[in-house]
Computed example of a mutant assay.
Amino acid sequence: MINRSDVLQAKRRISGYVRHTPLLRGGTAAAPLWLKCEFMQHTGVFKARGAFNRLLAARERGELDPGVGVVAASGGNAGLANAYAAAALGVPATVFVPESAPRLKVERLLGYGATVRQVGTEYADAFAAATQFVEQSGALFCHAYDQLEIAAGAGTVAEEILRDEPGIDTIIVAVGGGGLYAGVAAAAEGRARIVAVEPSTIPTLHAALAAGHPVDVAVSGVAADSLGARQVGGIAFAMASRVPPASVLVDDAAIVAARSRLWSDYRIPAEYGAAAAFAALTSGAYVPREGEQVAVIVCGANTDPCTLEEGPGAGITPGVRLN
C-alpha cells in the first residue's frame, strides 16, 4: 500500500535530480484551471521522478550493480526515464519496447545510451521479455508503473501542485497502468479529489473497479503507446479501493481534440496520453462544480511535432472556457 509518507520520502530523495515544473494558470475567474506542466520534466515525461526514486533507493540498499545496471519494459516513456536516470547515475540501461513504439522515442532511448530491444506488438510482450532478461542478467528491474518507489516518485507531482496552489480542490490525471494516479492519489489523500481519466479503448482502472479486481482489457487507440497497459497495477487498484476516484472515460476524438486545444491555446506539445486528462474537461466528461479549483496534469510531450495541428476542437463541447 502506498501512503503520502512514501511520496514525501521520494521527494527528499530525488531533490536535485528532477525539475519542479510550472503550474500554469488558465480558465476563468469563475472556473479556475491550472495546468501542471510536467511535460517539461527531464525526458519530457513525469516518469523521470519514479525512475530516479527507484534507482537511488536501490543504490542506497546496495542493489544497483554498476556492471549490469537496470532493465525496463516500456511503451517508450518509462524506458526514456530509466535510461536517463541510469545515465545520470553512471550505470547501463537495457530497455524493451514493443515494435510499435514511436520512432521518436526509440531514437531518444538510443540517444541516452540505452540498449534498445524491440519485442512484440504490445507493452505486455516487452514486459515478458524484460522479466526474462532480469532473470538471466541480474539487472535491477524498473517497472513502468507497479512498484512502490516508481509510484511514490510520480506522486511528487501532486506535492508540487498542492504546495504551489494549496486551494486546489481537484486533480485530474490520466491513467494507463496507474503509477502516476496511485502516487498522486496518495499524496493528495484528504487534501484534494482525484479524477482518473482513461481512454475508452483502454479502460484498465474503470474495468477493475467494475469487476472488483484488476482484469485484462484490449489495448488500442491513439494513446496506446503511453497508456497501453493491458491491466491496471495492483498498487493503483489498492489505492482506488481505499479512496475511490471519479473514474472518467474519454474517446479518441476527445483526446485528439484536447491535444489540439493544448497546442493552439497554450502551445503545449502534449502527446495523446498526456492530453487524455485535459480531454475530460474539453469534452464535458467531467464538469467541475461552480467555484471548483481544478488542476490538470499534462504529463508528457514525447510526440511528433508535425502532428500537433491535427484534430480541430470544433464539435467538442468544452467543459471549461480557456483564456
Rank of each mutant, 00 (worst) to 15 (best):
R13V: 14
F133S: 05
R25N: 00
R321F: 08
V68I: 14
R13F: 12
L262A: 09
R259Q: 14
I255Y: 13
L209Q: 14
E60Q: 15
V232P: 04
I172D: 08
D125G: 05
M239V: 15
A275I: 12
R289S: 15
A185R: 05
L24R: 09
R117T: 02
A211G: 10
V248Y: 10
E198R: 13
F39V: 06
L55R: 07
D65K: 00
Y181E: 11
I255L: 12
L80C: 01
Q9E: 15
G178R: 04
P166V: 14
L24H: 09
I2Y: 08
A78W: 04
G313Q: 06
A196T: 11
G273M: 13
F127Y: 14
V97E: 00
G190H: 09
Q136Y: 01
G153D: 01
A101Q: 09
D65M: 00
E271R: 08
F52C: 02
S283T: 13
A270I: 11
A83R: 08
V18G: 05
A85R: 05
I150G: 00
K36S: 00
A258G: 06
T121H: 12
R25E: 11
Y181M: 10
P98V: 03
G155A: 11
A86Q: 01
G190Y: 09
I171A: 00
L227T: 03
A196C: 11
A58V: 09
L262T: 04
G233M: 13
A270R: 12
I2E: 07
G155Q: 10
A144H: 03
T43I: 05
T121R: 15
G138I: 14
V175D: 03
A218E: 15
V296N: 10
G27Q: 01
H143T: 06
V195W: 05
S100E: 13
G273L: 14
D146P: 07
I297G: 01
Q118T: 02
D164R: 09
S264Y: 06
F278G: 02
G50R: 07
P244D: 06
I2L: 15
A229G: 06
A174T: 12
E38R: 00
E107S: 15
I14K: 04
V173I: 14
G221T: 01
A270Q: 09
E159A: 03
V296E: 01
P199W: 11
P66I: 10
L55K: 02
A10H: 06
V195E: 05
I316H: 05
P305W: 10
